[in-house]
Design a protein around this nucleic acid. Structure first.
Lengths: 249, 249
DNA sequence: CTAAAAACAATTAAAATCAATCATAAAAAT
DNA sequence: ATTTTTATGATTGATTTTAATTGTTTTTAG
């Protein structure tokens, strides 16, 4: 039996139970104890499971193979609904800015064709090209984690553009401080893009409202939040303290 | 049995299982072990599967989604050899420019880690990020066919950089006119990048020498061509008429 | 607390698989 | 028709994977 196949069997076994005995795996794979041990070491190094005395156990942060897909797909549905609503605000002929980020990318399938898009999202640009949308990318340093273009170069090339509308993602929305993003460099790009746009929209699903960690604030209250249902108390709270308009899809 | 047929059998086998033993493939195709090994090497280079000890496995990153078009592996081999040689010219600590294009992208796996890369290739940037290389993208209009960034915005952001070395692709090399690229907008970007670089290299496989269609010339003879073996006559012809240095890998 | 049992890591030798090379046969080019 | 190129299969020694064995550590039961 090939190594990838054994690894798959081991990981599959951990999808149903939260832990497996080494002996079970020996029988399941018709391999020796030594071989399974080596496999477990490899899989542990790849952070796919945790070795425990007598066998292996699922990882805490990564029990997502069954449930994370589920959760993220639920979250994705929510994101997609909001994104579709946001895309509906774009008119043919518009020149718009799309911020990097996983929520914004969901807008792309719903965008009209005859528009011009400027973005700082590396992966956004690829998707836009697939849809035959006229696409401009700003320059800058490519941030490894998010594939967003940021830094001095980003600001330089951004300031040559003007937008009818811009659509921004955020890491969190704070009832007192406004929109928050942990990376100051990214925040500066957002801020500039908003100031270059006639209308600014923040697209955020409800999970963003519970975020607590932040360090830098995109402090422009002239934008409109697009989100899904929010309980009226929260909504009122945000509006009164920050003057943010909240629109629900 | 013909090569394409074998390749299809191998790929089909991986559609049902997540891995196949080499011996199974030997029986399925009535070919020798050596032949299957060679097939697997080719298919792995075409990024259609992953070789593992004892056989081959599906690669899960891309479930047969993208360009299933197996690159003509003959031309690819040639490109890759030249690209590897070119990558060898890059020293740790260098700041280099990588032009968009299919030949240049093959350099990326061979580049050292501790360098800074500036590029106008959308797909290049993604690959560079995978390798954890510090990457800057210039801005500009994203050309749909090649995913290259061109135009006014590209020139604007490009001119803020300076490079130790730049590596350019071309569509053709003409014995009288020099390097040729059909798109004037793209040619301007190339030209500027070359002028911003201490050393300029043109990386081109032999197929580029037979190209005839061109419209705009990147008319800078200060670059060095990196290519594979060329018959001495051609080599001399190019050198005498264009003053282009030709280096073979 | 102690002893037996189970699980462990480390070492080893055998088997399987590998890369590299060579020779041959088929195909393509001249 | 002849040379060159290409694809294939066989053989070689080297490498990797595997399973069995060793002695050690951990768990469990009395």
């Amino acid at each position: 039996m090939l190594e990838p196949e054994r690894h798959q069997i081991i990981l599959d076994a951990l999808k149903t139970k939260s832990s497996v005995k080494l002996q079970e795996l020996v029988e399941l794979t018709n391999s020796s104890e030594s071989t399974i041990r080596r496999d477990l070491i490899q899989l542990e190094q790849g952070k796919l499971l945790k070795r425990v005395h007598g066998g292996a156990a699922r990882l805490q942060g990564k029990l997502q193979e069954p449930s994370m897909t589920e959760k993220s797909s639920k979250n994705l549905q929510s994101k997609r609904r909001i994104a579709q609503y946001a895309a509906g605000l774009v008119s043919e002929g518009d020149c718009i800015y799309l911020d990097a980020g996983s929520t914004i990318v969901e807008m792309i399938p719903f965008l009209p064709d005859n528009i011009v898009v400027v973005t700082n999202g590396l992966s956004h640009a690829s998707e836009l090209l697939e849809k035959n949308i006229k696409t401009f990318l700003i320059g800058g340093f490519a941030k490894p984690t998010t594939k967003a273009l940021i830094g001095r170069g980003a600001l330089d090339s951004l300031e040559h553009y003007r937008f009818d509308k811009c659509f921004m993602g955020v890491n969190g929305i704070h009832s007192q401080f406004g929109y928050t993003t942990p990376d100051p460099e990214e925040a500066m790009v957002k801020q500039l893009a908003i100031s270059l746009s006639s209308e600014a929209y923040v697209v955020a699903d409800e999970s963003k409202f519970s975020e607590v960690a932040f360090s830098k604030i995109t402090d422009l209250h002239q934008a409109t939040i697009i989100t899904n249902e929010l309980d009226p108390d929260t909504k009122e709270q945000y509006h009164s303290k920050t003057n943010i308009k909240v629109v629900t899809s």
